[in-house]
Design a protein around this nucleic acid. Structure first.
Lengths: 221, 221
DNA sequence: CTCCAAGAAATTGTATTCAAAATATACTAA
DNA sequence: TTAGTATATTTTGAATACAATTTCTTGGAG
């Protein structure tokens, strides 16, 4: 019999570091001092290095040989590149989710979305990022394609850690989520796909707009 | 001044292991004995573990805590899931490549493709997998989206290691490659996208057909 | 005062070590 | 024999150790 619960230090350290990066406890471009981090996490450098290797392939850190590991900072171009990919992958996921839709998961997600809508502005702003990550992950899970889950998952993590300050009012997102869920529950693949497409397009335009504004600001000074 | 050439053991070991898996020197589901592999590669277990961590996120190995690392075997469903994703990602890549196309790379690739066509059947069969990997990678590079390069790259590696025996005559692929290149060089995004779409669709159907045949065979026995 | 060089300190990359867990082996009892 | 258990061996997970490299510091020289 296998022990599925078993989680080695590698994995724990990996998860914790990932969290620290996404939550900005570790700043972009910050050098990851191995001894310091190891002490802080109460482990040796060995599991840390394996965690770094994973995070590297997930674009959350970068390695400069003989210089160490650094939190990877994402440029605007890269962020848009990621959205271009999410546009392709998450539409696929939504379409497949509609095909294979599991009602129990779907209902729970609908309830959660309604619950979010009922929150007041401040509370919503605080809880939205986590919820948003969960929403997108669950849709991908419904698709039954594990690769989608893992890829979209890491893109969303990168996104999460990098769009601080460019968030729009989350309420709009929530209504978009509801239409996606509606399309999925009615098993309409094409509708689900297009609902997801516009949802992500909106977010992408928002980022483009934000970057244009910042450029403008810079010019005016 | 940075030393870009610098490649630490981690990276060397990672590359070598990846090669060994794709070339089937390490069989699917085979347990990766750390001490043995380390000795064989002339390193200690430390860099090996970092390499494993990377390969794990690349779906080439899987970790079973306290039991070790194993070469990941891909099921037919997973292979088809991968093709579904490639269909989405590589069409995006082809379209962007057509938009930003760099003629020097393109011409080299065209020549290489023509050269491949001129080879005799046996030679072609031997050299095709490597060439195919390069073709798809270069198209993604032309797109200018680094994430596409790395994602499609690892999918192609997984594919490469798992479609042994289901290869069709590569000559057909080469002609499809030529139409993709044609579309890219004429900067026609939509045509490039659809050419890539049908190219990957053909490969996908081939796999579906193969799996049906195998099922049939099994029933007849 | 600034720039550079030499030496000291810190940090990384990698090997080695050791404890804990898993696997294999040998022995005993039915 | 065969199953089950105790013991030995192997293997993993993780800390420690150490050499090589980078970074910091200090002390001139211009």
């Amino acid at each position: 019999m296998y022990r599925v619960d078993n989680e080695d230090l590698n994995e724990q350290v990996y998860r914790r570091l990932r969290e620290m990066i996404v939550h900005r406890e570790l700043q972009p471009d910050q050098k990851l001092l191995q001894e310091e981090l190891a002490t802080q996490l109460g482990v040796s450098r060995t599991p840390l290095l394996s965690a770094f290797a994973k995070l590297e392939r997930e674009m959350l850190v970068k390695s400069v040989p003989r210089r160490g590991y650094f939190v990877r900072s994402i440029t605007l171009k890269e962020l848009l590149d990621i959205y271009e990919i999410r546009l392709r992958l998450e539409t696929l996921g939504a379409s497949e989710a509609a095909r294979k839709c599991d009602n129990s998961v779907l209902e729970a997600l609908m309830e959660k979305t309604d619950h979010m809508i009922s929150l007041d502005a401040e509370m919503l702003k605080a809880k939205f990022p986590e919820y948003d990550y969960e929403f997108h992950t669950l849709i991908m899970k419904m698709s039954g394609n594990e690769f989608l889950v893992s890829m979209v998952g890491s893109f969303n993590l990168v996104t999460l850690g990098n769009i601080t300050g460019m968030y729009r009012d989350p309420r709009g997102s929530l209504f978009e989520h509801k239409s996606i869920l509606g399309a999925v529950s009615s098993r309409d693949c094409e509708l689900a796909e297009s609902a997801m497409y516009s949802h992500i397009s909106v977010a992408k335009s928002r980022i483009e707009q934000y970057s244009k504004d910042r450029l403008h600001e810079a010019e005016e000074r």
